[in-house]
Simulated scan of single mutants.
Amino acid sequence: MTATLAIDLGGSKIAYGLLKNGSFIEKAEQPFRFFGDEKGLLEAIEIQVEKWRSYGITEIGIGSPGRINDGTIYSAVNLGYDLLPIQKKLEEAVQLPVYTENDATAALLGELVFGSLQGSSNAIFLTIGTGIGGGLVIDGKVYKGAANKAGEFGHYTYMRNGISCSCGKKGCWEMYASSKALIQMAIESASKDGMMAEFTDGAIESLNGKMFFKAVSSGDREAILILEQFTTYLADGIVDLLDILDVETVAVGGGISRTGLIDLVRNKVQSFHPTCNVQPASLGNDAGLYGAAVLSAYLSREAEHD
């Protein structure tokens, strides 16, 4: 019986989960304090593997930011790693098979196998956070593109000559429809005597998502108008993707998907694509762990089709 130790690497934490028979029997987290410290990261994972060996671990699955090719992490700028052969080094250290994949692809797999995308043959998975990432399913298979870069939805040009993005372009969709963009819109638009200013004691620059949605739920007109504009930006981008890809399901993940705004987005999208189901992703922060837990089966199928 397979017992997989799933690992989800993030900029602020590392999540672990032991999956048996399709469900996690144990989970744990530790702060990520290994920016650019390859040796420290590997040793930390090795220590965790030894703690979990009593569960009969048979394999390890890892989801990581950056581009993953042949078990090597490339350009994981938020972790400080480039050209880290994590699969080879861990297999040598712990004597177990290790499978690696990009974290967004892992989250997509989690939703496809266990979550909101079960049964979808053609789907888009969006992760709304500081930026916008995700993945694409075509004819029941994860589509990664010629250079493993498919799913960078946040960097399509939504507004020509618009807001400058850290990628070097202007007008990227994530500069208008990410959670970071929403808070920036609110900070720039809030009046000094409004509810958002009240919740921040006048220090509007400290506004966060919790405060913003508290203002929305309290009926603050400023916040409601900002949310209306934001959901239009988000829906516009989804409509553009659907004009090209024509998928049956769009699953939206990230903390913002649990605020209720998906109902607003769905209504706007379905005015152009009435048959597409726009829904919240169901696995929340565990999507990456679920995906990491099934990487061996996924990568084996990928190899068969090469």
Rank of each mutant, 00 (worst) to 15 (best):
G202K: 07
K214R: 14
D220R: 09
T157Y: 10
G40T: 02
E198M: 15
F272P: 02
S189G: 09
E228G: 06
Y143H: 15
G291P: 02
G209V: 11
M211D: 08
G219D: 00
P274Y: 00
T130M: 01
L96I: 07
N267P: 01
I224R: 09
T259F: 14
F24N: 05
R266G: 13
A197T: 15
I138L: 14
V247K: 04
G254Q: 09
G255D: 05
V142P: 02
T232R: 14
F125Y: 12
L295W: 11
E29N: 13
I183G: 10
T130L: 01
A28N: 08
T72W: 02
A15S: 12
S271G: 06
K268G: 00
K214C: 07
S54D: 05
T232K: 14
G22A: 02
M196G: 00
I124T: 03
G56V: 01
I226S: 05
A203I: 13
E50H: 11
N267K: 14
F24C: 11
F212Y: 08
T4Y: 01
E46W: 04
F35V: 10
V278Y: 03
E92S: 10
L126Q: 05
C172E: 12
E29P: 02
A15C: 10
Q87M: 11
I262T: 10
H305S: 12
K51D: 09
Q118C: 10
M175P: 13
I224W: 08
R266Q: 04
R221Q: 14
R266K: 13
D306I: 08
D139Q: 11
L90E: 05
N102R: 02
L117N: 13
E59L: 06
K13L: 05
A203S: 11
T157C: 06
G151E: 03
D306H: 11
